[in-house]
């Protein structure tokens, strides 16, 4: 569970950053997650290449796709942009199914080797856990850096008042594409890790539903805070699992939890936490 939380945090952070700092709703993260996973799966099982090559190829392919698709669609905004990313997710889902020479189609690709680090096999969930979390923390740290630096300020400026940002010399379109690419890279990284962890990938893991889950964790966690993403990822991973204990009504219970979370914590877990901390400091 905690491994999945870590994995989804990495890919979800890309969505959360787009949503919270750029004001862009992306439903396409499943595609980049899939590209990373299939790149790792194909490189290690079909080509017998060294595992890191899968990471690199996945990231390169995701970044290239993000530029190619992002360049035209990021001229759109609001609902239209969200719909364009949804279309990308749907096309991705179909292609993952149809290009079976690459993805194994409905059968998927199995037997993906476990990662090993300096000769230390990450074969048990516990060991993988100690690998995924430092990666997640590293990724969070990188984004915290970005947020507090030149391009982070520019990004948030663009979100709040795009016209004024342009007047300050910020090329908003180019900046959006850059952030979209970095989001895709995170998606791919999460996907590669996912493939090595579960050692079997199939189309079911990269559906539009997955994309919605990534968006959900960003919204629930509170996209404006970086830590919120982790809490959101924890929620969408742990909660459904835990609720299955209540029998067949578990999807209903999960839905009720979601509604409650959105109603009572409009700024997400991260926002609520931040507020509580601020109150504690003032008291």
């Amino acid at each position: 569970m905690l491994v999945f939380t870590g994995l989804y945090s990495i890919a979800g952070l890309g969505v959360a950053f787009l949503l919270g700092q750029c004001g862009i709703v992306s439903l396409a993260q499943s595609v980049f997650f899939g590209i990373g996973a299939y790149a790792s799966a194909y490189c290690t099982t079909q080509l017998n290449w060294w595992a890191p090559s899968g990471f690199v190829i996945g990231i390169a392919a995701s970044a290239a796709l993000a530029v190619a698709v992002g360049w035209p669609i990021l001229r759109l905004s609001g609902y239209f942009l969200a719909l364009a990313t949804l279309a990308l997710a749907m096309i991705g889902q179909v292609l993952f199914l149809e290009w079976d020479w690459l993805t194994g189609g409905t059968l998927g690709i199995g037997g993906i080797p476990k990662l090993s680090l300096f000769g230390f096999d990450l074969r048990t969930p516990q060991r993988f856990y100690y690998f995924v979390w430092p990666v997640a923390v590293l990724v969070l740290w990188l984004h915290a850096n970005l947020l507090g630096a030149r391009n982070g300020f520019a990004t948030r400026a663009m979100r709040d008042a795009p016209a004024a940002a342009a007047v300050l010399g910020i090329d908003t379109h180019v900046l959006k594409v850059k952030i979209f690419v970095s989001s895709a890279v995170l998606g791919s990284l999460g996907g590669s890790l996912f493939a090595h962890y579960v050692s079997f990938v199939s189309v079911d893991s990269f559906t539009v539903e997955r994309a919605i889950n990534f968006l959900l964790l960003a919204v629930l966690g509170g996209a404006k805070t970086i830590v919120g993403t982790v809490l959101g990822a924890g929620f969408v991973t742990v909660m459904p699992h835990w609720l299955t204990g209540f029998g067949d009504i578990h999807p209903l219970l999960f839905a009720a939890c979601l509604i409650a979370a959105v109603m009572f914590l409009p700024e997400g877990f991260g926002g609520a936490l931040q507020r509580a901390l601020r109150r504690g400091r003032e008291a």
Partner: peptide, 21 residues
């Protein structure tokens, strides 16, 4: 922070440099 954003034109680090601080 508004004023920091105003410095954008006269600064030049890229997204990668910012990521890695």
């Amino acid at each position: 922070e508004n004023l920091i954003a105003g410095c954008y034109k006269h600064t030049n680090t890229g997204v990668l440099a910012n990521l890695f601080a």
